[in-house]
Design a binder for these strands. Structure first.
Lengths: 186, 186
DNA sequence: CATTGTTCTTAGACTGTCTAGGATTCCATT
DNA sequence: AATGGAATCCTAGACAGTCTAAGAACAATG
């Protein structure tokens, strides 16, 4: 996203030609961008913000697995406060995507259920994409799948490992800044 | 992210075994999640929000390519208003990541330059990751790269095509809702 | 039962975005 | 040149989504 960024010149790859390392990384970037854009579209087509959409997807998943979801569960999953979940549920309830039900045994709690409507919306929006993806991978040979798997695992690992470096680095920068007398707006 | 979501049971794949379609899609999901988390970390380690970080990366890229960046350019790239860019620049200027300079010829405009500090921050944070990724793909054979490229291109295409379906679908839902008399909160 | 903990909600503040409109400056036509 | 329209950036005020703090209802435990 930077060292090569310039022109996107070689940018487009098409099957048949020799495939370079840069081609592969460009394609990875392309997939990532497409994924992001897709989410933005789904979100706006359902008139929701990111968090609301994630909440809904989580709800549907849990529901399908027969688990009940409470305010707290959503807060943990979405990494927002329970207070924010309350407001989020107000929104989703007002738009008819979700209902609050009494918890059968614990009268403090509520059980949150996604409506059939919202199930259908999400399923029908995302369904075709998932089917296409499945079909695509199904058509590959076992060997190809293994290659791709190794690649993805490697990329994920590379990305995951920035975590630690990041920690060290932050420290270094902090110290260096203090030396430079650059003030700190922590 | 839903039809299979339940348990994440088979979830973990490791090299050597037979690779199923589901494995591949799980790994894709894993990569995506890792990528997202990485961005969140970089962002918080640099005390920035997503937009600010994207702005900075864009700036550095353009700068390295010898292009100058104005308020308008950032607005277009980030898809926010020029007014918001103004505020964004206020933030980045206050934190010392960016400077406003007079445009040499057009006195209405400003030229935005990222400071050396911020260049170093981004470069050192992201550098190791990119190196790992490059190395990983470099080590693959040409054939493997082609396989992976085909896979990525396919996935991107699948995701991109949801756009159209999405349009149709939205229409369907809208109409159906009106039939259901479900009121409209357009 | 009295205390302590849990669960959700309400209230008020903050952040990042937007739209509307103002001040400068540029450019094209007269 | 002079002028009117377009472009560029900024300021002001509003809104949405988050947060923290604190409250009310209930549960669990001594």
């Amino acid at each position: 996203m930077s060292e090569s960024g310039e022109t996107e010149s070689a940018g487009y790859w098409y099957p048949g030609a020799e495939t370079s390392t840069v081609d592969v990384l460009n394609l990875l970037r392309r997939y990532r961008t497409a994924e992001l854009a897709m989410r933005a579209r789904t979100r706006s087509s359902m008139k929701m913000n990111e968090t609301d959409l994630l909440a809904l997807r989580f709800l549907l998943g849990e529901q399908r697995a027969g688990r009940e979801v409470k305010n707290r569960d959503l807060a943990d999953r979405l990494k927002i406060s329970t207070a924010s979940v309350t407001v989020l549920l107000d929104r989703l309830e007002r738009s008819g995507h979700v209902e609050r039900r009494k918890h059968p045994t614990d009268r403090r709690s509520i059980v949150i259920v996604a409506t059939v409507e919202s199930d259908r919306e999400v399923r029908e929006t995302l369904g075709p994409m998932h089917r296409r993806m499945l079909a695509l991978v199904d058509e590959m040979t076992g060997e190809e799948r293994t290659t791709v798997a190794r690649f993805l695992a490697g990329m994920a690992a590379a990305v995951e490992e920035v975590a630690d470096i990041d920690q060290e680095f932050r420290e270094v920068v902090r110290v260096q800044r203090e030396k430079d007398g650059l003030g700190d707006e922590h």
